[in-house]
Design a protein around this nucleic acid. Structure first.
Lengths: 242, 242
DNA sequence: GGCCTGGCATAACAGCGTTATGTAAAAAAT
DNA sequence: ATTTTTTACATAACGCTGTTATGCCAGGCC
Protein backbone atom coordinates (compact mmCIF):
# COMPACT_ATOMS: atom_id res chain seq x y z
CA UNK A 1 0.00 0.00 0.00
CA UNK A 2 1.28 3.36 -0.85
CA UNK A 3 2.22 5.07 2.08
CA UNK A 4 0.38 6.98 4.48
CA UNK A 5 3.89 7.63 5.28
CA UNK A 6 4.59 8.86 8.59
CA UNK A 7 5.42 11.74 10.70
CA UNK A 8 7.94 9.88 12.71
CA UNK A 9 10.77 12.25 13.09
CA UNK A 10 13.91 10.44 13.91
CA UNK A 11 16.44 13.10 13.58
CA UNK A 12 15.68 16.69 12.82
CA UNK A 13 18.08 18.63 10.69
CA UNK A 14 20.07 21.13 12.56
CA UNK A 15 17.98 24.27 12.12
CA UNK A 16 21.10 26.33 12.05
CA UNK A 17 22.60 24.45 9.15
CA UNK A 18 19.92 25.48 6.70
CA UNK A 19 20.00 29.17 7.40
CA UNK A 20 23.76 29.20 7.71
CA UNK A 21 24.06 27.77 4.21
CA UNK A 22 21.72 30.36 2.75
CA UNK A 23 23.50 33.06 4.65
CA UNK A 24 26.93 32.08 3.37
CA UNK A 25 25.68 31.53 -0.15
CA UNK A 26 24.10 34.96 -0.22
CA UNK A 27 27.28 36.55 1.04
CA UNK A 28 29.38 34.69 -1.52
CA UNK A 29 27.05 35.69 -4.33
CA UNK A 30 27.07 39.31 -3.23
CA UNK A 31 30.77 39.64 -2.48
CA UNK A 32 32.48 37.44 -5.05
CA UNK A 33 29.90 36.94 -7.74
CA UNK A 34 28.24 33.94 -9.27
CA UNK A 35 31.50 32.20 -10.16
CA UNK A 36 32.39 31.64 -6.53
CA UNK A 37 29.05 30.09 -5.68
CA UNK A 38 29.85 26.40 -5.53
CA UNK A 39 28.57 23.69 -3.26
CA UNK A 40 32.08 22.86 -2.11
CA UNK A 41 32.95 26.43 -1.31
CA UNK A 42 29.73 26.97 0.61
CA UNK A 43 30.13 23.73 2.52
CA UNK A 44 33.72 24.56 3.37
CA UNK A 45 32.82 27.98 4.73
CA UNK A 46 29.95 26.49 6.68
CA UNK A 47 32.18 23.78 8.10
CA UNK A 48 29.98 21.02 6.72
CA UNK A 49 30.10 18.71 3.75
CA UNK A 50 28.44 19.24 0.41
CA UNK A 51 25.79 16.71 1.37
CA UNK A 52 24.22 19.31 3.63
CA UNK A 53 23.24 21.20 0.50
CA UNK A 54 21.40 18.17 -0.79
CA UNK A 55 19.60 17.16 2.38
CA UNK A 56 18.48 20.73 2.97
CA UNK A 57 17.79 21.98 -0.53
CA UNK A 58 17.92 19.00 -2.84
CA UNK A 59 20.87 20.47 -4.71
CA UNK A 60 22.36 23.77 -5.70
CA UNK A 61 19.21 24.77 -7.58
CA UNK A 62 17.20 24.56 -4.40
CA UNK A 63 19.64 26.76 -2.57
CA UNK A 64 19.64 29.30 -5.36
CA UNK A 65 15.84 29.24 -5.35
CA UNK A 66 15.89 29.97 -1.64
CA UNK A 67 18.03 33.01 -2.29
CA UNK A 68 15.75 34.13 -5.08
CA UNK A 69 12.80 34.08 -2.69
CA UNK A 70 14.87 36.05 -0.25
CA UNK A 71 15.52 38.53 -3.05
CA UNK A 72 11.82 38.89 -3.82
CA UNK A 73 11.11 39.44 -0.16
CA UNK A 74 13.75 42.12 0.00
CA UNK A 75 12.28 43.92 -3.01
CA UNK A 76 8.85 43.77 -1.45
CA UNK A 77 10.28 45.13 1.78
CA UNK A 78 11.58 48.16 -0.08
CA UNK A 79 8.22 48.62 -1.78
CA UNK A 80 6.39 48.42 1.52
CA UNK A 81 8.24 51.47 2.76
CA UNK A 82 7.01 53.65 -0.09
CA UNK A 83 4.36 55.86 1.42
CA UNK A 84 1.05 56.43 -0.31
CA UNK A 85 0.72 60.19 -0.58
CA UNK A 86 -1.62 62.63 -2.25
CA UNK A 87 0.68 62.59 -5.28
CA UNK A 88 0.33 59.07 -6.71
CA UNK A 89 2.71 59.81 -9.57
CA UNK A 90 5.41 60.72 -7.10
CA UNK A 91 4.68 57.45 -5.32
CA UNK A 92 4.92 55.61 -8.62
CA UNK A 93 8.29 57.04 -9.54
CA UNK A 94 9.46 56.29 -6.03
CA UNK A 95 8.57 52.67 -6.69
CA UNK A 96 10.83 52.93 -9.70
CA UNK A 97 13.62 54.31 -7.57
CA UNK A 98 13.07 51.58 -4.99
CA UNK A 99 13.21 48.93 -7.72
CA UNK A 100 16.48 50.30 -9.01
CA UNK A 101 17.90 50.69 -5.53
CA UNK A 102 17.14 47.06 -4.75
CA UNK A 103 18.79 45.91 -7.96
CA UNK A 104 21.93 47.97 -7.37
CA UNK A 105 22.13 46.78 -3.78
CA UNK A 106 21.92 43.10 -4.74
CA UNK A 107 23.14 43.08 -8.33
CA UNK A 108 24.00 39.40 -8.65
CA UNK A 109 20.85 38.27 -6.95
CA UNK A 110 18.82 40.57 -9.14
CA UNK A 111 20.41 39.05 -12.24
CA UNK A 112 19.25 35.63 -11.14
CA UNK A 113 15.77 36.85 -10.27
CA UNK A 114 14.95 38.78 -13.42
CA UNK A 115 17.95 38.83 -15.71
CA UNK A 116 17.78 35.22 -16.67
CA UNK A 117 21.31 34.60 -15.46
CA UNK A 118 21.59 30.86 -15.12
CA UNK A 119 23.39 30.06 -11.92
CA UNK A 120 24.80 26.56 -11.69
CA UNK A 121 22.20 25.25 -14.07
CA UNK A 122 19.44 26.86 -12.06
CA UNK A 123 16.40 28.16 -13.86
CA UNK A 124 13.23 29.66 -12.51
CA UNK A 125 10.02 27.71 -12.55
CA UNK A 126 6.67 29.18 -13.49
CA UNK A 127 5.86 29.30 -9.80
CA UNK A 128 9.00 31.27 -9.06
CA UNK A 129 8.11 33.82 -11.71
CA UNK A 130 4.60 34.10 -10.31
CA UNK A 131 6.17 34.95 -6.99
CA UNK A 132 8.17 37.66 -8.69
CA UNK A 133 5.20 38.95 -10.63
CA UNK A 134 3.18 39.17 -7.46
CA UNK A 135 5.46 41.95 -6.29
CA UNK A 136 3.99 44.02 -9.11
CA UNK A 137 0.56 44.15 -7.50
CA UNK A 138 1.68 47.03 -5.34
CA UNK A 139 2.60 48.93 -8.48
CA UNK A 140 -0.72 48.07 -10.13
CA UNK A 141 -2.59 49.56 -7.19
CA UNK A 142 -0.53 52.72 -7.44
CA UNK A 143 -1.28 52.89 -11.15
CA UNK A 144 -4.93 52.71 -10.30
CA UNK A 145 -4.57 55.67 -7.99
CA UNK A 146 -2.81 57.59 -10.76
CA UNK A 147 -5.70 56.83 -13.10
CA UNK A 148 -8.42 57.86 -10.70
CA UNK A 149 -6.46 61.03 -9.97
CA UNK A 150 -6.62 61.71 -13.73
CA UNK A 151 -2.88 61.75 -14.03
CA UNK A 152 -2.74 58.71 -16.31
CA UNK A 153 -4.60 58.46 -19.57
CA UNK A 154 -5.17 54.75 -19.99
CA UNK A 155 -7.63 52.73 -17.99
CA UNK A 156 -5.62 49.54 -17.82
CA UNK A 157 -3.61 49.79 -14.61
CA UNK A 158 -2.04 46.38 -15.02
CA UNK A 159 -0.82 47.21 -18.49
CA UNK A 160 0.66 50.48 -17.33
CA UNK A 161 2.40 48.74 -14.46
CA UNK A 162 3.94 46.27 -16.88
CA UNK A 163 5.13 49.06 -19.15
CA UNK A 164 6.83 50.84 -16.29
CA UNK A 165 8.26 47.64 -14.92
CA UNK A 166 9.80 46.49 -18.19
CA UNK A 167 11.22 49.93 -18.90
CA UNK A 168 12.89 50.31 -15.52
CA UNK A 169 14.03 46.73 -15.58
CA UNK A 170 15.78 47.29 -18.89
CA UNK A 171 17.56 50.35 -17.64
CA UNK A 172 18.71 48.58 -14.51
CA UNK A 173 19.85 45.53 -16.44
CA UNK A 174 21.97 47.56 -18.84
CA UNK A 175 23.30 49.59 -15.93
CA UNK A 176 24.41 46.42 -14.17
CA UNK A 177 25.97 45.28 -17.44
CA UNK A 178 28.07 48.47 -17.58
CA UNK A 179 26.38 49.50 -20.79
CA UNK A 180 25.42 52.98 -19.63
CA UNK A 181 28.44 55.29 -19.65
CA UNK A 182 29.12 58.99 -20.10
CA UNK A 183 27.52 61.13 -21.21
CA UNK A 184 24.41 58.99 -20.95
CA UNK A 185 25.20 57.40 -17.62
CA UNK A 186 22.58 55.48 -15.71
CA UNK A 187 21.54 58.38 -13.48
CA UNK A 188 20.95 60.70 -16.41
CA UNK A 189 18.95 58.15 -18.38
CA UNK A 190 17.03 57.09 -15.30
CA UNK A 191 15.86 60.55 -14.34
CA UNK A 192 14.88 61.39 -17.90
CA UNK A 193 13.15 58.06 -18.26
CA UNK A 194 11.05 58.48 -15.13
CA UNK A 195 9.62 61.70 -16.47
CA UNK A 196 9.14 60.38 -19.98
CA UNK A 197 7.39 57.28 -18.74
CA UNK A 198 4.90 59.28 -16.73
CA UNK A 199 4.28 61.59 -19.67
CA UNK A 200 4.00 58.59 -21.95
CA UNK A 201 1.08 57.18 -20.03
CA UNK A 202 -0.75 60.45 -19.69
CA UNK A 203 0.75 62.90 -17.23
CA UNK A 204 1.70 66.41 -18.29
CA UNK A 205 5.36 67.32 -18.56
CA UNK A 206 5.05 69.83 -15.76
CA UNK A 207 3.26 67.57 -13.30
CA UNK A 208 5.52 64.66 -14.09
CA UNK A 209 8.64 66.77 -13.61
CA UNK A 210 7.35 67.96 -10.26
CA UNK A 211 6.45 64.45 -9.10
CA UNK A 212 9.77 63.00 -10.20
CA UNK A 213 11.58 65.73 -8.28
CA UNK A 214 9.38 65.04 -5.28
CA UNK A 215 10.17 61.34 -5.32
CA UNK A 216 13.87 62.13 -5.58
CA UNK A 217 13.59 64.01 -2.33
CA UNK A 218 11.75 61.12 -0.68
CA UNK A 219 14.20 58.45 -1.85
CA UNK A 220 16.66 58.51 1.03
CA UNK A 221 14.21 58.45 3.87
CA UNK A 222 11.68 56.00 2.44
CA UNK A 223 13.98 53.62 0.59
CA UNK A 224 17.70 53.94 1.07
CA UNK A 225 17.47 54.10 4.84
CA UNK A 226 15.46 50.90 5.01
CA UNK A 227 17.44 48.30 6.83
CA UNK A 228 17.39 44.81 5.37
CA UNK A 229 15.71 43.20 8.31
CA UNK A 230 16.17 39.48 8.81
CA UNK A 231 13.43 38.21 6.60
CA UNK A 232 12.99 34.49 6.98
CA UNK A 233 13.95 33.86 10.55
CA UNK A 234 16.11 35.38 13.17
CA UNK A 235 19.67 35.01 12.12
CA UNK A 236 21.39 32.96 14.77
CA UNK A 237 24.96 33.93 15.56
CA UNK A 238 27.30 32.30 13.11
CA UNK A 239 28.28 28.81 14.11
CA UNK A 240 31.97 28.39 14.32
CA UNK A 241 33.36 24.87 14.18
CA UNK A 242 36.84 24.43 15.42
CA UNK B 1 49.14 5.62 -35.26
CA UNK B 2 46.33 4.36 -37.34
CA UNK B 3 44.53 7.53 -37.95
CA UNK B 4 42.99 6.54 -41.23
CA UNK B 5 39.99 8.81 -40.87
CA UNK B 6 40.97 12.19 -42.21
CA UNK B 7 43.92 13.78 -43.84
CA UNK B 8 42.48 17.24 -43.58
CA UNK B 9 45.09 19.02 -41.50
CA UNK B 10 46.98 21.73 -43.20
CA UNK B 11 49.25 23.04 -40.53
CA UNK B 12 48.91 26.70 -41.13
CA UNK B 13 45.61 27.69 -39.66
CA UNK B 14 43.10 25.50 -41.36
CA UNK B 15 40.54 28.12 -42.37
CA UNK B 16 37.73 25.62 -42.16
CA UNK B 17 38.36 24.67 -38.57
CA UNK B 18 37.78 28.15 -37.21
CA UNK B 19 34.51 28.81 -38.96
CA UNK B 20 33.31 25.28 -38.40
CA UNK B 21 33.77 25.70 -34.67
CA UNK B 22 31.88 28.98 -34.59
CA UNK B 23 29.19 27.47 -36.77
CA UNK B 24 28.68 24.48 -34.52
CA UNK B 25 28.87 26.55 -31.36
CA UNK B 26 26.22 28.92 -32.66
CA UNK B 27 23.96 26.05 -33.59
CA UNK B 28 24.43 24.42 -30.19
CA UNK B 29 23.69 27.68 -28.38
CA UNK B 30 20.60 28.28 -30.48
CA UNK B 31 19.22 24.75 -30.44
CA UNK B 32 20.13 23.39 -27.03
CA UNK B 33 20.86 26.46 -24.96
CA UNK B 34 23.85 27.64 -23.01
CA UNK B 35 24.19 24.47 -20.95
CA UNK B 36 25.17 22.40 -23.95
CA UNK B 37 27.88 24.78 -25.05
CA UNK B 38 31.06 23.04 -23.92
CA UNK B 39 34.46 22.81 -25.51
CA UNK B 40 34.29 19.04 -25.49
CA UNK B 41 30.89 18.92 -27.12
CA UNK B 42 31.86 21.40 -29.81
CA UNK B 43 35.10 19.60 -30.51
CA UNK B 44 33.32 16.27 -30.72
CA UNK B 45 30.77 17.57 -33.20
CA UNK B 46 33.50 19.21 -35.23
CA UNK B 47 35.55 16.02 -35.24
CA UNK B 48 38.53 17.71 -33.63
CA UNK B 49 39.98 17.90 -30.16
CA UNK B 50 39.35 20.60 -27.62
CA UNK B 51 42.75 22.07 -28.39
CA UNK B 52 41.36 23.49 -31.61
CA UNK B 53 39.29 25.86 -29.48
CA UNK B 54 42.43 27.12 -27.82
CA UNK B 55 44.63 27.53 -30.88
CA UNK B 56 41.84 29.32 -32.73
CA UNK B 57 40.19 31.37 -29.99
CA UNK B 58 42.40 31.17 -26.94
CA UNK B 59 39.67 29.44 -24.97
CA UNK B 60 35.93 29.25 -24.68
CA UNK B 61 35.69 32.95 -23.91
CA UNK B 62 37.21 33.77 -27.26
CA UNK B 63 34.76 31.57 -29.06
CA UNK B 64 31.83 33.09 -27.20
CA UNK B 65 33.17 36.54 -28.03
CA UNK B 66 33.24 35.59 -31.68
CA UNK B 67 29.59 34.63 -31.50
CA UNK B 68 28.74 37.86 -29.71
CA UNK B 69 30.30 39.85 -32.55
CA UNK B 70 28.29 37.78 -34.95
CA UNK B 71 25.20 38.66 -32.93
CA UNK B 72 25.97 42.38 -33.10
CA UNK B 73 26.47 42.11 -36.83
CA UNK B 74 23.15 40.38 -37.19
CA UNK B 75 21.36 43.10 -35.21
CA UNK B 76 23.00 45.75 -37.35
CA UNK B 77 21.94 43.87 -40.45
CA UNK B 78 18.32 44.06 -39.31
CA UNK B 79 18.70 47.75 -38.56
CA UNK B 80 20.20 48.41 -41.98
CA UNK B 81 17.02 47.19 -43.63
CA UNK B 82 14.84 49.75 -41.86
CA UNK B 83 14.05 52.35 -44.46
CA UNK B 84 14.28 56.05 -43.69
CA UNK B 85 10.90 57.45 -44.61
CA UNK B 86 9.13 60.75 -44.24
CA UNK B 87 7.73 59.50 -40.92
CA UNK B 88 10.78 59.29 -38.66
CA UNK B 89 8.68 58.15 -35.70
CA UNK B 90 7.44 55.18 -37.68
CA UNK B 91 11.06 54.45 -38.57
CA UNK B 92 11.99 54.70 -34.92
CA UNK B 93 9.33 52.27 -33.75
CA UNK B 94 10.36 49.95 -36.56
CA UNK B 95 13.85 49.98 -35.09
CA UNK B 96 12.23 48.85 -31.88
CA UNK B 97 10.44 46.04 -33.68
CA UNK B 98 13.66 45.04 -35.40
CA UNK B 99 15.47 44.99 -32.08
CA UNK B 100 12.84 42.75 -30.58
CA UNK B 101 12.73 40.54 -33.64
CA UNK B 102 16.48 40.01 -33.48
CA UNK B 103 16.30 39.11 -29.80
CA UNK B 104 13.48 36.63 -30.28
CA UNK B 105 15.24 35.06 -33.24
CA UNK B 106 18.49 34.54 -31.32
CA UNK B 107 17.36 34.46 -27.70
CA UNK B 108 20.38 32.77 -26.14
CA UNK B 109 22.82 34.85 -28.10
CA UNK B 110 20.95 37.98 -27.13
CA UNK B 111 21.16 37.02 -23.48
CA UNK B 112 24.92 36.83 -23.76
CA UNK B 113 25.16 40.10 -25.66
CA UNK B 114 23.02 42.30 -23.44
CA UNK B 115 21.52 40.24 -20.67
CA UNK B 116 24.71 39.72 -18.77
CA UNK B 117 24.29 35.96 -18.97
CA UNK B 118 27.69 34.59 -18.10
CA UNK B 119 28.49 31.79 -20.46
CA UNK B 120 31.27 29.46 -19.35
CA UNK B 121 32.84 32.21 -17.32
CA UNK B 122 32.73 34.57 -20.27
CA UNK B 123 32.18 38.22 -19.61
CA UNK B 124 32.16 41.13 -22.00
CA UNK B 125 35.03 43.56 -22.07
CA UNK B 126 34.62 47.31 -22.32
CA UNK B 127 35.53 46.99 -25.98
CA UNK B 128 32.82 44.44 -26.59
CA UNK B 129 30.23 46.72 -25.06
CA UNK B 130 31.47 49.61 -27.16
CA UNK B 131 30.86 47.45 -30.19
CA UNK B 132 27.33 46.85 -28.98
CA UNK B 133 26.74 50.48 -28.16
CA UNK B 134 27.89 51.46 -31.60
CA UNK B 135 24.81 49.79 -33.02
CA UNK B 136 22.83 52.52 -31.28
CA UNK B 137 24.23 55.23 -33.54
CA UNK B 138 21.64 54.37 -36.16
CA UNK B 139 18.93 54.95 -33.58
CA UNK B 140 20.51 58.23 -32.49
CA UNK B 141 20.37 59.50 -36.07
CA UNK B 142 16.76 58.55 -36.30
CA UNK B 143 16.05 60.35 -33.04
CA UNK B 144 17.65 63.42 -34.55
CA UNK B 145 15.31 63.21 -37.49
CA UNK B 146 12.37 62.94 -35.11
CA UNK B 147 13.56 66.05 -33.30
CA UNK B 148 14.04 68.14 -36.41
CA UNK B 149 10.62 66.99 -37.57
CA UNK B 150 9.26 68.44 -34.31
CA UNK B 151 7.89 65.10 -33.27
CA UNK B 152 10.16 64.80 -30.22
CA UNK B 153 10.34 67.39 -27.50
CA UNK B 154 13.87 67.04 -26.16
CA UNK B 155 16.97 68.16 -27.96
CA UNK B 156 19.24 65.38 -26.76
CA UNK B 157 18.97 62.66 -29.40
CA UNK B 158 21.50 60.40 -27.71
CA UNK B 159 19.59 60.53 -24.45
CA UNK B 160 16.32 59.72 -26.19
CA UNK B 161 17.92 56.81 -27.99
CA UNK B 162 19.15 55.43 -24.69
CA UNK B 163 15.72 55.77 -23.14
CA UNK B 164 14.09 53.87 -25.97
CA UNK B 165 16.84 51.26 -26.01
CA UNK B 166 16.69 50.51 -22.30
CA UNK B 167 12.90 50.34 -22.34
CA UNK B 168 12.69 47.94 -25.26
CA UNK B 169 15.57 45.92 -23.91
CA UNK B 170 13.77 45.46 -20.63
CA UNK B 171 10.61 44.27 -22.30
CA UNK B 172 12.52 41.83 -24.49
CA UNK B 173 14.52 40.53 -21.53
CA UNK B 174 11.43 39.82 -19.47
CA UNK B 175 9.73 38.30 -22.48
CA UNK B 176 12.64 35.93 -22.96
CA UNK B 177 12.46 35.14 -19.26
CA UNK B 178 8.80 34.15 -19.63
CA UNK B 179 7.74 36.89 -17.28
CA UNK B 180 5.11 38.38 -19.58
CA UNK B 181 1.99 36.25 -19.60
CA UNK B 182 -1.73 36.77 -20.10
CA UNK B 183 -3.40 39.14 -20.03
CA UNK B 184 -0.33 41.33 -20.30
CA UNK B 185 1.56 39.23 -22.78
CA UNK B 186 4.61 40.53 -24.56
CA UNK B 187 2.77 41.63 -27.69
CA UNK B 188 0.24 43.66 -25.77
CA UNK B 189 2.84 45.37 -23.60
CA UNK B 190 5.12 45.95 -26.57
CA UNK B 191 2.54 47.69 -28.73
CA UNK B 192 1.36 49.84 -25.84
CA UNK B 193 4.92 50.63 -24.90
CA UNK B 194 5.91 51.75 -28.38
CA UNK B 195 3.16 54.35 -28.38
CA UNK B 196 3.81 55.44 -24.81
CA UNK B 197 7.50 55.83 -25.42
CA UNK B 198 6.93 58.09 -28.41
CA UNK B 199 4.41 60.14 -26.46
CA UNK B 200 6.79 60.22 -23.52
CA UNK B 201 9.50 61.96 -25.52
CA UNK B 202 7.17 64.43 -27.18
CA UNK B 203 4.94 63.03 -29.86
CA UNK B 204 1.18 63.41 -29.68
CA UNK B 205 -0.97 60.41 -28.93
CA UNK B 206 -2.59 60.57 -32.35
CA UNK B 207 0.62 60.87 -34.36
CA UNK B 208 2.34 58.21 -32.29
CA UNK B 209 -0.55 55.81 -32.71
CA UNK B 210 -0.50 56.33 -36.45
CA UNK B 211 3.26 55.85 -36.70
CA UNK B 212 3.21 52.74 -34.55
CA UNK B 213 0.50 51.27 -36.76
CA UNK B 214 2.51 52.21 -39.83
CA UNK B 215 5.63 50.49 -38.54
CA UNK B 216 3.60 47.41 -37.76
CA UNK B 217 2.65 47.20 -41.40
CA UNK B 218 6.26 47.64 -42.49
CA UNK B 219 7.62 44.99 -40.11
CA UNK B 220 7.35 41.92 -42.29
CA UNK B 221 8.83 43.35 -45.44
CA UNK B 222 11.64 45.40 -43.92
CA UNK B 223 12.66 43.17 -41.02
CA UNK B 224 11.19 39.71 -40.78
CA UNK B 225 11.91 38.87 -44.41
CA UNK B 226 15.57 39.76 -44.04
CA UNK B 227 17.64 36.67 -44.55
CA UNK B 228 20.55 36.21 -42.21
CA UNK B 229 23.28 36.39 -44.82
CA UNK B 230 26.61 34.79 -44.06
CA UNK B 231 28.29 37.60 -42.26
CA UNK B 232 31.91 36.80 -41.58
CA UNK B 233 32.95 34.75 -44.53
CA UNK B 234 31.44 32.42 -47.03
CA UNK B 235 30.27 29.34 -45.20
CA UNK B 236 32.05 26.40 -46.76
CA UNK B 237 29.98 23.22 -47.10
CA UNK B 238 30.14 21.26 -43.89
CA UNK B 239 33.03 18.85 -43.87
CA UNK B 240 32.01 15.32 -43.20
CA UNK B 241 34.49 12.87 -41.70
CA UNK B 242 34.52 9.12 -42.35
C1' DG C 1 17.11 -0.38 26.72
C1' DG C 2 16.95 -1.21 21.79
C1' DC C 3 14.85 0.30 17.19
C1' DC C 4 14.67 3.05 13.01
C1' DT C 5 14.96 6.92 10.47
C1' DG C 6 17.26 10.42 8.37
C1' DG C 7 21.19 14.18 8.67
C1' DC C 8 25.60 14.41 7.40
C1' DA C 9 30.79 12.79 6.25
C1' DT C 10 33.47 10.36 3.06
C1' DA C 11 34.62 9.21 -1.31
C1' DA C 12 33.67 8.32 -5.83
C1' DC C 13 31.84 9.55 -10.75
C1' DA C 14 31.06 12.16 -14.83
C1' DG C 15 31.66 16.33 -16.77
C1' DC C 16 33.71 20.92 -17.22
C1' DG C 17 37.73 24.51 -18.84
C1' DT C 18 42.34 24.48 -19.25
C1' DT C 19 47.19 23.09 -19.99
C1' DA C 20 51.64 20.32 -20.65
C1' DT C 21 53.53 17.46 -23.89
C1' DG C 22 54.28 15.18 -28.17
C1' DT C 23 53.77 14.76 -33.18
C1' DA C 24 53.58 15.78 -37.67
C1' DA C 25 52.76 18.83 -41.39
C1' DA C 26 53.22 23.36 -43.57
C1' DA C 27 56.21 27.29 -44.26
C1' DA C 28 60.69 29.22 -44.49
C1' DA C 29 65.48 29.00 -44.99
C1' DT C 30 69.24 26.91 -46.78
C1' DA D 1 65.90 19.56 -52.67
C1' DT D 2 66.91 19.38 -48.12
C1' DT D 3 66.90 21.14 -43.64
C1' DT D 4 65.06 23.99 -40.13
C1' DT D 5 61.50 26.30 -37.95
C1' DT D 6 56.90 27.08 -36.91
C1' DT D 7 52.56 25.77 -35.27
C1' DA D 8 47.93 23.34 -35.50
C1' DC D 9 46.18 19.72 -33.41
C1' DA D 10 45.83 14.97 -30.54
C1' DT D 11 46.42 12.92 -26.22
C1' DA D 12 46.20 12.90 -21.54
C1' DA D 13 46.33 14.93 -17.32
C1' DC D 14 45.00 18.57 -13.51
C1' DG D 15 41.81 20.83 -10.72
C1' DC D 16 37.41 22.17 -10.57
C1' DT D 17 32.27 21.52 -10.70
C1' DG D 18 27.41 19.23 -9.32
C1' DT D 19 25.82 15.02 -7.94
C1' DT D 20 25.38 10.47 -5.71
C1' DA D 21 26.30 5.82 -3.36
C1' DT D 22 27.72 4.36 0.91
C1' DG D 23 28.14 4.23 5.76
C1' DC D 24 28.26 6.17 10.37
C1' DC D 25 25.70 7.70 14.14
C1' DA D 26 22.76 10.90 16.68
C1' DG D 27 18.54 11.49 17.89
C1' DG D 28 12.93 10.80 18.73
C1' DC D 29 9.82 6.53 19.26
C1' DC D 30 8.62 1.93 21.25
Amino acid sequence: MLCHTVKVSPRRSNPQTRSTLVDIAARLLADEGPQSLSARRIAAEAGTSTMAVYTNFGGMSGLVREMVYEGFARLEAYFSHVALTADPVADMTLFGRAYRHNALTNPHLYAVMFGGASLAGFSLTAEDRQYGRYTLSTVVECANRCITADRFRTGDAELVAHQLWTAIHGLVTLELGDYLIEPCNADVVFEAQLTSLMVGVGDTVESATRSVASSRRRLKKEVEDVRPEPSMEERPPRKRTV
